[in-house]
Simulated assay, not measured.
Amino acid sequence: MRRILAIGGGGFMMEDAPSPIDQHIVSLTAKARPRICYLATPSGDLPEHLGKFHAAYGDMDCETSHLAFFRQPDSKSILTTDFRTRLLEQDAIYVGGGNTKSALAVWREWGLDSVLREAWESGVLLAGMSAGAMCWYEAGLTDSFWGAAYRPLDCLGLLPGGCAVHYSSDPQRRETLHAAQQAATIPPSIAIDDFAAALYMSTSVDSVFSWREGSTAYQVYREHETVIETALPVKRIGR
């Protein structure tokens, strides 16, 4: 069963209180004490992000670990010399936010891109927020180039099409995605709001989850000369 959960924004990295989406990830593993590994590569393995992950998922009785390429290993680390074996043992792998372009370059250099595909094909739940959501698609609409605008970026290609995140929180993302669709520089895309997430079964959207009123995901594509944006139905989680 190949599954990916793409989170537009939210969870332990953005919310102070325990988030329904983090609790939902744990429930998707269907394990009493799931093994969940965190990849903070997009943020350069910031210790603050690693700490927040271990605190949030440790409080939910998960067996947590992380794989870091920019920090010395500690007691929670998966070693870079043995990451394939350890990642394939996980129930879920979670990728954090940050610079998608830089993370992809590091993963490709280390061969992690092929291991992530192998994990997905073997049934490990893949999840991620922001950069950690876009990375799974053929393309992401990103500011990882550190320029003034968002640009399409070739990503891992596990999921078809493109992805935009934090969609309704920044009007420029919508404008740029529509322009990219019009210019055919990004394939038909899913655009995911903050406090919303899309769950894929194999390579198709199975459900969209929302834990804040008004948050959802959209299918965005060009039909003839018109860009179409269609909101997807949501399932509410949390209170």
Rank of each mutant, 00 (worst) to 15 (best):
M1L: 14
R2C: 12
R2L: 11
R2V: 10
R3F: 03
R3P: 05
R3L: 07
L5V: 08
I7F: 02
I7L: 03
I7C: 03
I7W: 00
G9W: 04
G11W: 01
F12V: 07
E15S: 09
A17Y: 12
A17P: 08
S19N: 09
P20E: 05
P20W: 04
D22S: 08
I25P: 00
V26N: 09
S27W: 00
T29I: 05
T29F: 02
A30D: 13
R33A: 14
R33N: 14
I36W: 01
C37F: 05
C37A: 15
T41Q: 12
G44Q: 11
G44N: 12
L46D: 14
P47F: 10
E48P: 03
L50I: 13
K52Q: 11
A56S: 15
A56G: 09
Y57N: 06
Y57A: 00
Y57T: 06
D59V: 09
C62W: 05
S65P: 07
S65M: 12
L67Q: 05
F69L: 11
F70I: 04
Q72R: 15
P73A: 09
P73Y: 09
D74E: 09
S77I: 02
I78C: 00
I78S: 05
T80S: 14
T80P: 13
T85Y: 09
L88P: 00
A92L: 00
I93E: 07
I93S: 03
Y94H: 07
G96T: 03
G97K: 03
G97I: 06
G97D: 02
G98R: 06
G98Q: 04
T100L: 02
T100S: 06
S102A: 14
A105W: 04
V106N: 04
R108M: 04
E109K: 12
E109R: 11
L112K: 01
L112H: 04
D113H: 01
S114R: 14
R117W: 06
G123N: 00
L125I: 07
A131R: 02
G132L: 05
A133N: 06
A133I: 00
C135N: 11
Y137P: 04
Y137C: 10
A139N: 10
A139L: 10
L141I: 03
S144E: 08
G147V: 08
A148V: 13
Y150G: 00
P152I: 06
G157Y: 10
L158T: 07
L158V: 06
L159T: 01
G161T: 06
G162M: 02
Y167C: 05
D170N: 14
P171I: 01
P171Q: 07
P171W: 06
R173S: 08
R174H: 11
A183P: 10
A183S: 13
T185N: 12
T185P: 13
T185H: 12
S189M: 08
S189Y: 05
I190N: 07
I190K: 00
I190W: 02
A191G: 04
A191H: 01
I192T: 02
F195V: 11
F195Q: 15
A196Q: 08
A197K: 02
A197F: 00
A198I: 08
Y200N: 08
M201A: 15
M201T: 14
M201I: 12
S204K: 15
V205I: 15
W211P: 01
G214R: 07
G214S: 08
S215K: 04
S215C: 14
A217W: 00
V220E: 03
V220L: 08
R222H: 10
E223W: 10
H224C: 07
V227S: 07
E229Y: 09
L232A: 05
I237G: 07
G238N: 01
R239I: 11
